[in-house]
Simulated scan of single mutants.
Amino acid sequence: MTKIPRSVASELSFALHAAANRMVRLHKPFLEPLGLTFSQYLVTLELLNGAPLSVGELCTRLDMETGTLTPLLKRLQAAGVLTRTRDPSDERRVLIDLSMHSRGMEEELRGIPDKIRVACQLTADELETLRLTLDGLGRPLADS
């Protein structure tokens, strides 16, 4: 494997960090009226795509550790965004589902990606290419 010069790797790290921060800032004006943080929005979107989910399934889909996700889920439950219940078929599992209130915000939540696309000033094809590139960086085939 070819080694990347140190300065190029650090420049990539800074660029990714800056882009991630900008993405969070771009979402903020759309999420604040809904009472959601960026992380809470990601959880909510994943649940809109198929709930209920176990905590483990949600961790896998969001690439988050249980210790990070559980406090986030508890805050969302306290805010009335989601419900946490024991799986009747396996009491060890906790199932996460959206509340009726959150389901009422579905259209608004699903509209945010289009607003972000406009704010990024990228075409749909450019955004898809960028997403595929980032997916490749975020989920490498093998550890190096």
Results as ranks from 00 to 15, higher is better:
Q121F: 07
L76P: 07
L130E: 09
S10A: 06
A119M: 03
E46F: 00
R61K: 15
R139W: 05
K74S: 12
Y41P: 07
D135K: 13
T85I: 15
Q77K: 15
L26I: 08
L95S: 08
L72S: 06
M100P: 01
V94M: 13
T44D: 00
L12Y: 02
V94Y: 03
I112D: 04
I96R: 02
S7G: 05
F30Y: 14
V118P: 03
Y41W: 06
A15K: 10
L45A: 05
L47I: 01
T129E: 11
P29E: 04
G67R: 03
E46V: 02
T85R: 15
L16I: 13
R75V: 06
V8T: 15
L76F: 05
F38T: 09
S10R: 13
L137N: 04
T60R: 13
E32Y: 00
N21S: 13
S99P: 01
L141D: 09
A18V: 08
R22D: 10
N21T: 12
M1E: 06
E107M: 03
R92V: 10
L48M: 11
T133M: 12
E106V: 04
P71L: 05
P140G: 11
L34A: 07
P140Y: 07
L12M: 11
L34Y: 01
R75S: 05
R84I: 15
R92F: 09
P71Q: 05
L58Q: 03
R139A: 13
R61T: 02
E91F: 04
T44R: 00
E65M: 03
A119H: 02
S39W: 01
V118H: 09
D143T: 09
V118R: 14
V43H: 00
G111D: 09
L122D: 02
L36F: 03
L26H: 01
E108C: 04
A15H: 06
C59Q: 12
T2I: 11
T37H: 00
Q77R: 15
N21Y: 05
A18L: 13
T60Q: 12
A18M: 10
M100V: 08
A19K: 13
G50T: 10
V24K: 12
L36D: 03
S89R: 15
T44I: 11
A20N: 09
Y41H: 09
R110L: 11
F14C: 01
R139M: 11
G136W: 08
A51H: 11
E107C: 02
A9F: 07
R110Q: 08
S144A: 12
S144Q: 10
R139Y: 10
N49V: 00
R75K: 08
R110I: 03
A20Y: 06
T129C: 08
T70R: 14
L45Y: 01
R103C: 06
Q40L: 02
V94S: 13
T85C: 10
L127V: 14
S10E: 12
L72N: 01
S39D: 11
T123W: 05
I116N: 02
E32P: 00
V43K: 00
M23H: 09
A15W: 03
R84T: 14
M23G: 04
L31N: 04
L122I: 09
P71T: 03
G138R: 15
V8W: 09
V81L: 01
Q40G: 13
D63N: 14
S10M: 11
L141H: 08
